[in-house]
Design a protein around this nucleic acid. Structure first.
Length: 482
DNA sequence: TGAAATGTTGGGGCG
DNA sequence: ACGCCCCAACATTTC
Protein backbone atom coordinates (compact mmCIF):
# COMPACT_ATOMS: atom_id res chain seq x y z
CA UNK A 1 0.00 0.00 0.00
CA UNK A 2 1.53 3.25 -1.04
CA UNK A 3 0.64 6.29 1.03
CA UNK A 4 2.25 8.97 -1.08
CA UNK A 5 0.27 11.66 0.67
CA UNK A 6 1.72 10.90 4.10
CA UNK A 7 4.49 13.04 5.51
CA UNK A 8 8.07 11.77 5.22
CA UNK A 9 9.89 10.08 8.08
CA UNK A 10 13.45 10.79 9.12
CA UNK A 11 15.80 7.92 9.94
CA UNK A 12 18.64 9.12 12.10
CA UNK A 13 21.64 6.84 11.55
CA UNK A 14 24.23 6.58 14.31
CA UNK A 15 25.86 3.23 15.15
CA UNK A 16 23.63 1.26 12.80
CA UNK A 17 25.19 1.96 9.41
CA UNK A 18 23.37 -0.77 7.51
CA UNK A 19 20.18 -1.47 5.61
CA UNK A 20 19.52 -5.03 6.70
CA UNK A 21 18.22 -5.82 10.18
CA UNK A 22 17.57 -2.13 10.67
CA UNK A 23 14.24 -1.77 12.49
CA UNK A 24 14.19 2.03 12.43
CA UNK A 25 14.66 2.04 8.68
CA UNK A 26 12.06 -0.66 8.15
CA UNK A 27 9.53 1.17 10.29
CA UNK A 28 10.12 4.42 8.45
CA UNK A 29 9.86 2.82 5.03
CA UNK A 30 6.75 0.82 5.87
CA UNK A 31 3.86 1.43 3.48
CA UNK A 32 6.11 3.11 0.95
CA UNK A 33 6.51 6.22 3.07
CA UNK A 34 9.11 8.74 1.96
CA UNK A 35 12.29 8.23 3.97
CA UNK A 36 14.95 10.81 4.73
CA UNK A 37 18.15 9.21 5.97
CA UNK A 38 20.53 11.43 7.87
CA UNK A 39 23.82 11.11 9.69
CA UNK A 40 24.70 13.91 12.07
CA UNK A 41 28.29 14.59 13.09
CA UNK A 42 27.78 15.38 16.73
CA UNK A 43 30.67 15.96 19.09
CA UNK A 44 28.45 15.59 22.12
CA UNK A 45 29.79 13.68 25.08
CA UNK A 46 33.07 13.28 26.89
CA UNK A 47 34.49 10.80 24.41
CA UNK A 48 34.78 12.39 20.96
CA UNK A 49 35.62 9.79 18.35
CA UNK A 50 39.31 8.89 18.09
CA UNK A 51 41.40 9.10 14.94
CA UNK A 52 41.01 5.50 13.83
CA UNK A 53 37.24 5.60 14.43
CA UNK A 54 36.93 8.79 12.41
CA UNK A 55 38.74 7.16 9.50
CA UNK A 56 36.40 4.16 9.69
CA UNK A 57 33.33 6.38 9.94
CA UNK A 58 34.30 8.20 6.75
CA UNK A 59 34.59 4.95 4.81
CA UNK A 60 31.43 3.55 6.34
CA UNK A 61 29.36 6.61 5.48
CA UNK A 62 30.54 6.38 1.87
CA UNK A 63 29.43 2.75 1.79
CA UNK A 64 26.08 3.49 3.43
CA UNK A 65 25.34 6.34 1.02
CA UNK A 66 26.16 4.11 -1.91
CA UNK A 67 23.93 1.32 -0.57
CA UNK A 68 21.06 3.74 0.05
CA UNK A 69 21.36 5.25 -3.42
CA UNK A 70 21.26 1.78 -4.96
CA UNK A 71 17.76 1.39 -3.52
CA UNK A 72 16.48 4.81 -4.47
CA UNK A 73 17.38 6.59 -1.27
CA UNK A 74 20.21 8.86 -0.21
CA UNK A 75 22.19 9.87 2.86
CA UNK A 76 21.97 13.44 4.13
CA UNK A 77 24.94 14.71 6.14
CA UNK A 78 24.51 17.37 8.80
CA UNK A 79 26.42 18.66 11.78
CA UNK A 80 25.19 18.72 15.38
CA UNK A 81 24.03 19.37 17.99
CA UNK A 82 21.76 16.59 16.87
CA UNK A 83 18.50 17.87 18.34
CA UNK A 84 18.75 21.19 16.55
CA UNK A 85 19.90 19.57 13.31
CA UNK A 86 16.97 17.14 13.31
CA UNK A 87 14.53 19.89 14.13
CA UNK A 88 15.80 21.94 11.22
CA UNK A 89 15.68 18.95 8.87
CA UNK A 90 12.10 18.18 9.88
CA UNK A 91 11.08 21.79 9.23
CA UNK A 92 12.74 21.81 5.81
CA UNK A 93 11.19 18.56 4.65
CA UNK A 94 7.84 18.50 6.42
CA UNK A 95 8.77 15.27 8.18
CA UNK A 96 6.40 14.36 10.99
CA UNK A 97 8.27 11.34 12.35
CA UNK A 98 11.83 10.61 13.45
CA UNK A 99 13.07 7.05 13.98
CA UNK A 100 16.37 5.77 15.26
CA UNK A 101 18.06 2.71 16.70
CA UNK A 102 19.27 3.08 20.26
CA UNK A 103 22.74 3.93 21.49
CA UNK A 104 23.71 3.05 25.04
CA UNK A 105 26.56 5.38 26.00
CA UNK A 106 25.48 7.51 28.96
CA UNK A 107 25.91 10.75 27.01
CA UNK A 108 24.00 9.31 24.04
CA UNK A 109 21.15 8.20 26.28
CA UNK A 110 20.93 11.71 27.73
CA UNK A 111 21.05 13.30 24.28
CA UNK A 112 18.42 10.97 22.85
CA UNK A 113 16.10 11.35 25.81
CA UNK A 114 16.25 15.13 25.46
CA UNK A 115 15.60 14.86 21.73
CA UNK A 116 12.65 12.56 22.28
CA UNK A 117 11.06 14.98 24.74
CA UNK A 118 11.70 17.89 22.43
CA UNK A 119 10.04 16.30 19.40
CA UNK A 120 7.11 14.95 21.32
CA UNK A 121 6.47 18.49 22.52
CA UNK A 122 6.58 19.61 18.89
CA UNK A 123 4.05 16.97 17.93
CA UNK A 124 6.54 14.92 15.93
CA UNK A 125 6.35 11.17 16.32
CA UNK A 126 9.53 9.66 17.75
CA UNK A 127 10.28 5.96 17.95
CA UNK A 128 13.47 4.19 18.93
CA UNK A 129 14.40 0.56 18.29
CA UNK A 130 16.93 -2.06 19.24
CA UNK A 131 19.39 -2.84 16.49
CA UNK A 132 22.63 -3.04 18.44
CA UNK A 133 22.17 -5.69 21.12
CA UNK A 134 20.77 -9.19 21.53
CA UNK A 135 19.21 -8.16 24.85
CA UNK A 136 18.40 -4.67 26.10
CA UNK A 137 20.54 -3.77 29.14
CA UNK A 138 17.50 -3.17 31.35
CA UNK A 139 15.81 -6.43 30.40
CA UNK A 140 18.41 -8.62 32.09
CA UNK A 141 18.52 -8.42 35.87
CA UNK A 142 19.13 -10.53 38.95
CA UNK A 143 16.29 -11.89 41.05
CA UNK A 144 16.84 -8.90 43.33
CA UNK A 145 16.31 -6.58 40.37
CA UNK A 146 19.97 -5.56 40.26
CA UNK A 147 22.28 -5.46 37.24
CA UNK A 148 24.68 -8.38 36.87
CA UNK A 149 28.31 -7.97 37.84
CA UNK A 150 29.43 -11.50 37.01
CA UNK A 151 29.61 -12.57 33.40
CA UNK A 152 28.65 -16.24 33.75
CA UNK A 153 25.52 -15.39 35.71
CA UNK A 154 24.69 -12.64 33.23
CA UNK A 155 25.05 -14.94 30.25
CA UNK A 156 22.92 -17.63 31.91
CA UNK A 157 20.22 -15.04 32.47
CA UNK A 158 20.42 -14.06 28.80
CA UNK A 159 19.90 -17.69 27.81
CA UNK A 160 16.86 -17.79 30.10
CA UNK A 161 15.50 -14.69 28.36
CA UNK A 162 15.09 -16.76 25.21
CA UNK A 163 16.40 -16.75 21.69
CA UNK A 164 17.36 -13.33 20.24
CA UNK A 165 14.89 -12.03 17.69
CA UNK A 166 15.32 -12.95 14.05
CA UNK A 167 17.05 -10.30 11.94
CA UNK A 168 14.95 -8.18 9.58
CA UNK A 169 15.45 -8.12 5.82
CA UNK A 170 16.44 -4.82 4.22
CA UNK A 171 13.65 -2.68 2.73
CA UNK A 172 13.23 -3.42 -1.01
CA UNK A 173 12.93 0.10 -2.26
CA UNK A 174 13.35 3.47 -0.62
CA UNK A 175 11.44 6.48 -1.84
CA UNK A 176 13.30 9.71 -1.44
CA UNK A 177 11.79 13.15 -1.23
CA UNK A 178 12.13 13.85 -4.94
CA UNK A 179 13.79 17.21 -4.43
CA UNK A 180 17.23 18.07 -3.20
CA UNK A 181 17.85 18.31 0.52
CA UNK A 182 20.82 20.25 1.71
CA UNK A 183 23.68 17.98 2.68
CA UNK A 184 27.22 18.72 3.77
CA UNK A 185 30.24 17.38 1.90
CA UNK A 186 31.74 14.37 3.66
CA UNK A 187 35.25 15.56 2.84
CA UNK A 188 34.57 18.83 4.65
CA UNK A 189 34.31 16.85 7.88
CA UNK A 190 38.01 16.00 7.61
CA UNK A 191 37.53 12.60 9.19
CA UNK A 192 40.52 11.11 7.41
CA UNK A 193 44.12 12.16 8.05
CA UNK A 194 45.82 14.53 5.62
CA UNK A 195 49.45 14.96 6.55
CA UNK A 196 50.84 12.73 7.73
CA UNK A 197 48.50 10.17 6.27
CA UNK A 198 48.79 7.32 8.77
CA UNK A 199 45.78 5.47 7.38
CA UNK A 200 47.52 3.42 4.71
CA UNK A 201 47.71 0.36 6.94
CA UNK A 202 44.04 0.69 7.81
CA UNK A 203 43.11 0.93 4.15
CA UNK A 204 44.99 -2.30 3.43
CA UNK A 205 43.51 -4.18 6.37
CA UNK A 206 39.81 -3.38 6.19
CA UNK A 207 36.70 -3.03 4.04
CA UNK A 208 34.33 -0.82 6.03
CA UNK A 209 30.64 -0.96 5.16
CA UNK A 210 27.79 -3.42 5.20
CA UNK A 211 29.13 -5.50 2.32
CA UNK A 212 32.59 -5.71 3.87
CA UNK A 213 31.00 -6.77 7.16
CA UNK A 214 28.96 -9.52 5.55
CA UNK A 215 31.98 -10.77 3.61
CA UNK A 216 34.00 -10.90 6.82
CA UNK A 217 31.29 -12.87 8.60
CA UNK A 218 30.88 -15.31 5.74
CA UNK A 219 34.62 -15.87 5.50
CA UNK A 220 34.84 -16.49 9.24
CA UNK A 221 31.91 -18.89 9.36
CA UNK A 222 33.07 -20.69 6.25
CA UNK A 223 36.53 -21.53 7.48
CA UNK A 224 38.17 -19.87 10.47
CA UNK A 225 35.51 -20.78 13.04
CA UNK A 226 36.33 -24.45 12.62
CA UNK A 227 39.29 -24.07 14.96
CA UNK A 228 37.97 -21.11 16.94
CA UNK A 229 38.05 -22.64 20.39
CA UNK A 230 41.54 -24.04 20.01
CA UNK A 231 43.20 -21.24 18.06
CA UNK A 232 41.41 -18.03 18.98
CA UNK A 233 44.24 -17.24 21.40
CA UNK A 234 46.91 -17.58 18.73
CA UNK A 235 47.83 -14.20 17.25
CA UNK A 236 49.93 -15.98 14.64
CA UNK A 237 46.82 -17.65 13.20
CA UNK A 238 43.72 -16.26 11.50
CA UNK A 239 40.99 -17.78 13.64
CA UNK A 240 39.27 -14.70 15.05
CA UNK A 241 36.28 -13.10 13.36
CA UNK A 242 37.63 -9.52 13.17
CA UNK A 243 34.02 -8.36 13.19
CA UNK A 244 34.51 -5.90 16.07
CA UNK A 245 34.70 -2.64 14.06
CA UNK A 246 31.81 -3.73 11.84
CA UNK A 247 29.73 -4.46 14.92
CA UNK A 248 30.70 -1.21 16.61
CA UNK A 249 29.51 0.88 13.68
CA UNK A 250 26.51 -1.35 13.17
CA UNK A 251 27.44 -2.42 9.66
CA UNK A 252 26.22 -5.76 10.84
CA UNK A 253 24.05 -6.45 13.86
CA UNK A 254 24.54 -9.00 16.63
CA UNK A 255 21.24 -10.69 15.73
CA UNK A 256 22.54 -11.27 12.20
CA UNK A 257 25.80 -12.69 13.55
CA UNK A 258 23.88 -14.89 15.98
CA UNK A 259 21.56 -16.27 13.36
CA UNK A 260 24.21 -16.83 10.70
CA UNK A 261 26.46 -18.60 13.18
CA UNK A 262 23.72 -20.99 14.18
CA UNK A 263 22.75 -21.67 10.58
CA UNK A 264 26.26 -22.10 9.21
CA UNK A 265 28.16 -23.47 12.19
CA UNK A 266 25.42 -25.17 14.17
CA UNK A 267 25.72 -25.84 17.87
CA UNK A 268 29.33 -26.93 17.81
CA UNK A 269 31.69 -26.09 20.67
CA UNK A 270 33.47 -23.66 18.36
CA UNK A 271 30.22 -21.86 17.57
CA UNK A 272 29.20 -21.74 21.23
CA UNK A 273 32.54 -20.24 22.17
CA UNK A 274 32.21 -17.60 19.50
CA UNK A 275 28.68 -16.72 20.60
CA UNK A 276 29.98 -16.37 24.16
CA UNK A 277 32.22 -13.60 22.87
CA UNK A 278 29.10 -11.83 21.64
CA UNK A 279 27.97 -12.35 25.22
CA UNK A 280 30.96 -10.37 26.51
CA UNK A 281 29.97 -7.58 24.14
CA UNK A 282 26.47 -7.65 25.64
CA UNK A 283 27.91 -7.73 29.17
CA UNK A 284 30.04 -4.65 28.51
CA UNK A 285 27.01 -2.71 27.31
CA UNK A 286 25.06 -3.93 30.32
CA UNK A 287 27.78 -2.69 32.69
CA UNK A 288 28.17 0.71 31.02
CA UNK A 289 24.43 1.25 30.96
CA UNK A 290 24.04 0.50 34.66
CA UNK A 291 27.38 2.00 35.79
CA UNK A 292 27.76 5.12 33.65
CA UNK A 293 31.06 6.19 35.23
CA UNK A 294 32.70 2.94 34.05
CA UNK A 295 34.98 4.72 31.51
CA UNK A 296 36.40 7.08 34.13
CA UNK A 297 36.10 5.60 37.59
CA UNK A 298 37.14 2.34 39.23
CA UNK A 299 34.12 0.15 39.65
CA UNK A 300 35.71 -1.09 42.87
CA UNK A 301 36.25 1.98 44.99
CA UNK A 302 39.18 0.36 46.83
CA UNK A 303 41.25 0.99 43.71
CA UNK A 304 40.84 4.74 44.15
CA UNK A 305 43.75 4.56 46.60
CA UNK A 306 46.01 2.53 44.28
CA UNK A 307 49.51 4.05 44.06
CA UNK A 308 49.92 4.35 40.30
CA UNK A 309 53.25 5.45 38.89
CA UNK A 310 53.94 8.64 36.96
CA UNK A 311 56.06 7.47 34.03
CA UNK A 312 55.58 9.45 30.80
CA UNK A 313 58.60 7.79 29.17
CA UNK A 314 57.24 4.33 29.96
CA UNK A 315 53.86 5.28 28.56
CA UNK A 316 55.41 6.55 25.36
CA UNK A 317 57.55 3.41 24.96
CA UNK A 318 54.41 1.30 25.40
CA UNK A 319 52.43 3.34 22.87
CA UNK A 320 55.14 3.13 20.24
CA UNK A 321 55.99 -0.53 20.79
CA UNK A 322 59.49 0.05 22.18
CA UNK A 323 59.29 -1.76 25.51
CA UNK A 324 61.89 -4.40 24.70
CA UNK A 325 59.35 -7.19 25.20
CA UNK A 326 58.71 -8.53 21.69
CA UNK A 327 55.13 -9.74 22.17
CA UNK A 328 54.15 -6.39 23.70
CA UNK A 329 55.86 -4.39 20.99
CA UNK A 330 54.37 -6.55 18.23
CA UNK A 331 50.88 -5.92 19.58
CA UNK A 332 51.32 -2.19 19.94
CA UNK A 333 52.68 -1.93 16.41
CA UNK A 334 49.90 -4.06 14.99
CA UNK A 335 47.49 -1.66 16.67
CA UNK A 336 49.19 1.42 15.29
CA UNK A 337 49.44 0.01 11.77
CA UNK A 338 46.07 -1.67 11.35
CA UNK A 339 43.83 -0.11 14.02
CA UNK A 340 43.27 -3.53 15.54
CA UNK A 341 45.05 -5.94 17.87
CA UNK A 342 44.51 -9.61 18.51
CA UNK A 343 42.51 -10.16 21.71
CA UNK A 344 45.12 -12.28 23.49
CA UNK A 345 47.72 -9.61 22.77
CA UNK A 346 45.37 -6.89 24.03
CA UNK A 347 45.39 -8.69 27.37
CA UNK A 348 49.17 -9.03 27.35
CA UNK A 349 49.85 -5.40 26.43
CA UNK A 350 47.23 -4.15 28.88
CA UNK A 351 48.66 -6.24 31.70
CA UNK A 352 52.09 -4.86 30.88
CA UNK A 353 50.92 -1.25 31.08
CA UNK A 354 48.95 -1.65 34.28
CA UNK A 355 51.11 -4.14 36.18
CA UNK A 356 54.64 -3.92 34.82
CA UNK A 357 54.64 -0.16 34.29
CA UNK A 358 52.11 0.50 37.06
CA UNK A 359 50.38 3.10 34.89
CA UNK A 360 46.67 3.80 35.43
CA UNK A 361 44.33 1.82 33.20
CA UNK A 362 42.77 5.05 31.99
CA UNK A 363 46.03 5.86 30.16
CA UNK A 364 45.76 2.64 28.19
CA UNK A 365 42.06 3.15 27.64
CA UNK A 366 42.72 6.58 26.12
CA UNK A 367 45.35 5.24 23.71
CA UNK A 368 43.16 2.35 22.60
CA UNK A 369 40.26 4.77 22.18
CA UNK A 370 42.28 6.85 19.75
CA UNK A 371 43.93 4.03 17.79
CA UNK A 372 41.41 1.17 17.59
CA UNK A 373 39.02 1.03 14.64
CA UNK A 374 36.70 -0.96 16.93
CA UNK A 375 36.95 1.55 19.79
CA UNK A 376 33.74 1.09 21.74
CA UNK A 377 33.13 2.95 24.98
CA UNK A 378 31.60 -0.01 26.78
CA UNK A 379 34.01 -2.73 25.65
CA UNK A 380 37.06 -0.52 26.08
CA UNK A 381 36.18 0.60 29.58
CA UNK A 382 34.95 -2.78 30.79
CA UNK A 383 37.98 -4.59 29.39
CA UNK A 384 40.56 -2.22 30.84
CA UNK A 385 38.93 -2.44 34.23
CA UNK A 386 38.83 -6.20 33.86
CA UNK A 387 42.59 -6.31 33.27
CA UNK A 388 43.35 -3.79 36.02
CA UNK A 389 41.33 -5.79 38.51
CA UNK A 390 39.19 -2.77 39.36
CA UNK A 391 36.15 -3.89 37.38
CA UNK A 392 33.27 -6.30 37.46
CA UNK A 393 34.12 -9.99 37.41
CA UNK A 394 37.69 -8.84 36.93
CA UNK A 395 40.92 -10.73 36.79
CA UNK A 396 42.39 -10.61 40.30
CA UNK A 397 45.14 -8.03 40.53
CA UNK A 398 47.75 -10.63 41.38
CA UNK A 399 47.12 -12.39 38.10
CA UNK A 400 50.09 -10.88 36.31
CA UNK A 401 51.01 -11.93 32.79
CA UNK A 402 54.61 -12.83 32.11
CA UNK A 403 55.19 -11.42 28.60
CA UNK A 404 57.87 -13.99 27.82
CA UNK A 405 55.76 -16.99 28.83
CA UNK A 406 52.68 -15.59 27.11
CA UNK A 407 54.69 -15.10 23.93
CA UNK A 408 56.12 -18.61 24.08
CA UNK A 409 52.73 -20.13 24.75
CA UNK A 410 50.64 -18.30 22.18
CA UNK A 411 53.21 -17.41 19.51
CA UNK A 412 55.49 -20.43 19.84
CA UNK A 413 57.38 -19.95 16.58
CA UNK A 414 57.53 -16.18 16.92
CA UNK A 415 55.77 -15.67 13.59
CA UNK A 416 53.55 -12.93 15.02
CA UNK A 417 56.49 -11.11 16.55
CA UNK A 418 58.50 -11.29 13.34
CA UNK A 419 55.60 -9.90 11.35
CA UNK A 420 55.38 -6.73 13.46
CA UNK A 421 58.91 -6.40 14.81
CA UNK A 422 61.07 -6.81 11.71
CA UNK A 423 64.24 -5.99 13.67
CA UNK A 424 63.97 -9.49 15.10
CA UNK A 425 63.20 -11.31 11.85
CA UNK A 426 66.25 -13.57 12.01
CA UNK A 427 66.15 -14.34 15.74
CA UNK A 428 65.36 -18.06 16.20
CA UNK A 429 62.26 -19.22 18.13
CA UNK A 430 64.27 -20.05 21.25
CA UNK A 431 65.15 -16.40 21.80
CA UNK A 432 62.48 -14.50 19.89
CA UNK A 433 60.50 -13.68 23.05
CA UNK A 434 63.57 -12.93 25.21
CA UNK A 435 66.34 -11.62 22.94
CA UNK A 436 68.21 -10.02 25.86
CA UNK A 437 68.98 -13.53 27.15
CA UNK A 438 70.36 -14.77 23.84
CA UNK A 439 74.11 -15.37 23.50
CA UNK A 440 75.87 -12.26 22.23
CA UNK A 441 77.38 -14.20 19.33
CA UNK A 442 73.94 -15.30 18.17
CA UNK A 443 72.57 -11.76 18.25
CA UNK A 444 75.56 -10.50 16.31
CA UNK A 445 75.05 -13.27 13.80
CA UNK A 446 71.44 -12.26 13.14
CA UNK A 447 72.30 -8.58 13.02
CA UNK A 448 70.66 -7.40 16.24
CA UNK A 449 72.44 -4.89 18.48
CA UNK A 450 70.37 -4.64 21.63
CA UNK A 451 69.87 -1.07 22.66
CA UNK A 452 70.42 0.09 19.07
CA UNK A 453 68.38 -2.04 16.65
CA UNK A 454 65.93 -3.18 19.31
CA UNK A 455 65.55 -1.92 22.89
CA UNK A 456 66.53 -3.77 26.01
CA UNK A 457 63.54 -4.39 28.32
CA UNK A 458 62.49 -1.07 29.87
CA UNK A 459 61.65 -2.91 33.10
CA UNK A 460 62.70 -6.26 34.52
CA UNK A 461 59.52 -8.29 34.68
CA UNK A 462 60.48 -10.05 37.89
CA UNK A 463 61.19 -6.75 39.63
CA UNK A 464 58.08 -5.17 38.15
CA UNK A 465 55.94 -8.06 39.33
CA UNK A 466 57.16 -7.68 42.91
CA UNK A 467 56.57 -3.94 42.72
CA UNK A 468 53.00 -4.48 41.46
CA UNK A 469 52.20 -6.96 44.20
CA UNK A 470 53.57 -4.55 46.80
CA UNK A 471 51.44 -1.75 45.37
CA UNK A 472 48.40 -4.00 45.45
CA UNK A 473 49.09 -4.92 49.06
CA UNK A 474 48.65 -1.26 50.05
CA UNK A 475 44.99 -1.29 49.00
CA UNK A 476 44.14 -4.86 49.91
CA UNK A 477 41.68 -5.00 52.75
CA UNK A 478 39.90 -1.90 51.52
CA UNK A 479 36.16 -1.57 51.83
CA UNK A 480 35.39 -3.57 48.70
CA UNK A 481 34.60 -7.26 48.79
CA UNK A 482 37.20 -9.43 47.13
C1' DT B 1 40.90 -15.45 30.05
C1' DG B 2 48.48 -16.74 35.31
C1' DA B 3 52.71 -17.33 37.40
C1' DA B 4 55.71 -18.39 41.03
C1' DA B 5 56.51 -20.66 45.24
C1' DT B 6 55.99 -24.55 47.81
C1' DG B 7 54.79 -29.35 48.59
C1' DT B 8 54.61 -34.31 47.19
C1' DT B 9 55.95 -38.36 44.85
C1' DG B 10 58.61 -41.81 42.80
C1' DG B 11 62.43 -43.56 39.99
C1' DG B 12 67.27 -44.15 39.71
C1' DG B 13 72.10 -43.68 41.26
C1' DC B 14 74.94 -44.89 44.76
C1' DG B 15 77.23 -46.46 48.99
C1' DA C 1 69.06 -55.76 49.61
C1' DC C 2 68.42 -51.50 51.62
C1' DG C 3 68.40 -46.66 52.81
C1' DC C 4 69.57 -42.26 51.38
C1' DC C 5 69.84 -38.46 48.32
C1' DC C 6 68.78 -36.05 44.20
C1' DC C 7 65.61 -34.12 41.27
C1' DA C 8 62.24 -34.29 37.58
C1' DA C 9 57.41 -34.27 37.27
C1' DC C 10 53.29 -33.17 38.95
C1' DA C 11 50.03 -31.09 42.43
C1' DT C 12 48.78 -27.55 45.57
C1' DT C 13 49.07 -23.11 47.54
C1' DT C 14 50.02 -18.37 47.42
C1' DC C 15 50.46 -13.94 45.42
Amino acid sequence: MRTSDSAPAIVWFRQDLRLSDNPALCAAAAGGRTVICVYILDNAGDWPMGGASRWWLHQSLLALRSDLRARGGDLILRRGPAGAALSELAAETGARAIFWNRCYEPWAVARDTAAKNRFKAEGIEVRSFNAGLLFEPWSIQTKAGEPYKVFSAFWRACAQAGEPEAPLPPPDVLSGLGRAIRSEMLDSWALTPATPDWAGGLQDAWSPGEIGARDRLDAFLGEAISRYRADRDRPDRPHTSKLSPHLHFGEIGPRQVWRATQVLAGHTPDAEKFLTELGWREFSHHLLFHFPTLPERNLRAAFDAFPWADDPAGLEAWRRGHTGYPIVDAGMRELWTTGWMHNRVRMITASFLVKDLLLPWQAGEAWFWDTLVDADLSANAASWQWVAGSGADAAPYFRIFNPVLQGEKFDPDGAYVRRWVPELTRVPPTWIHKPWLAPQALLTGVGVRLGADYPRPIVDHGVARDRALAAFATIKGGSDPA
